[in-house]
């Protein structure tokens, strides 16, 4: 029996190599398109890069987007990802001595390292609002130019025109940049878009509504409009009885308001906005 001719080296592996190369090129092209004008006008369908990726990757892009989001989380933790529960395995023990397992977070400008993955995730699947919010939060925190942050919010709102959480988070971004008029407009938009009984997490949505309404109350109090401020605080308390900021604001508004104190509280609220990232220390494969 004749032995077949020897293999053709790289030629044998050409198909998978070309597939990898093409995927990277396509992905990169999509990311470049991301910065350009959308091929489809906002509100009429998927944005440009999503259309390109839809035609090329099909449903696979959602899977890749999910993995990109996970990769961003892993990068945030210095490359140490989630893992199954500990078990006795000599190879794993060896690997853990060789490789880092400590729990760390990226800080400051270093957090920019995870942004390429979030950028990929939003380009591949514009339908996940959580990823947009996470991206916008970190683009701002790593010190990108204001125009870049606004660009993320613009695209997020194109992809999610009916979701109150995008204008809500953007409003607090505007508060941090000192654009209080813009913030007020966005807070009002968030209240208009607030889901009437259709929310996935009613408790979270009520908390958000109270947060937005009390911020509106504070803005009105800063402007010297005690009556409008009181209305905002009452709306916050209706959504979340016992809301501390709203209760304090209501007491001040009853006495005619205190714009200086309202300004201080507003700045603190904007600065203390929590990161969308929620790390459960127990489900990570790393030591604290």
């Amino acid at each position: 029996m004749r032995r077949p001719a020897p293999g053709r080296s790289v030629g044998d592996a050409a198909a998978p190599l070309l597939a990898v190369a093409l995927w990277i090129l396509l992905f990169s092209a999509a990311c470049l398109l991301h910065a350009a004008r959308p091929l489809v006008p906002a509100g009429t369908g998927p944005t440009g890069e999503a259309g390109v990726l839809d035609r090329t990757l099909g449903a696979l892009r959602f899977l890749v987007a999910e993995r990109a989001t996970v990769a961003a989380d892993v990068y945030y933790h210095g490359g140490v990802g989630h893992a199954a529960a500990p078990r006795r395995d000599p190879f794993r023990a060896w690997s853990e001595r060789l490789d880092p397992v400590r729990h760390v977070h990226l800080h400051g400008a270093e957090a920019a390292e995870m942004l390429p993955w979030l950028r990929a995730a939003t380009a591949l699947d514009a339908g996940d609002v959580e990823t947009w919010l996470l991206t916008a939060y970190w683009v701002e925190r790593v010190g990108a130019e204001a125009g870049e942050v606004e660009g993320v919010y613009r695209r997020a709102r194109q992809a999610h025109p009916r979701n109150y959480r995008v204008p809500q988070q953007q409003a607090f971004h505007r508060l941090r940049t000192g654009d209080w008029d813009g913030a007020e407009t966005l807070l009002r938009l968030a209240l208009r878009l607030w889901p009437q009984g259709e929310e996935d997490d009613p408790d979270h949505a009520l908390r958000d509504r109270a947060h937005v309404a009390s911020a509106l109350g504070l803005l009105r109090e800063v402007a010297g409009d005690a009556a409008a401020a009181e209305a905002g605080y009452r709306e916050a308390l209706a959504a979340r009885p016992g809301h501390e900021t709203a209760a304090e604001g209501l007491r001040r508004a009853a006495q005619g308001g205190d714009p200086v104190e309202a300004r201080r509280v507003l700045r603190r609220l904007a600065a203390e906005e929590p990161a969308p990232h929620a790390c459960d220390h127990h489900d990570h494969h790393h030591h604290h």
Binding site: V10, L17, A21, I24, L25, S28, C31, L32, A35, Y75, A109, E110, A112, E113, L115, P116, W117, R119, V139, V142, A144, E145, G147, E148, G151, V152
Partner: peptide, 26 residues
């Protein structure tokens, strides 16, 4: 393979990431 690697990395490194110069790890 060397040329392919350089080309792929060149394209990846050229991806614009929110105007930031920093991201290197990816």
């Amino acid at each position: 393979l060397w040329v392919l690697l350089a080309a792929l990395l060149g394209v990846l490194a050229g991806v614009e990431v929110y105007g930031l110069a920093r991201p290197a790890r990816y």
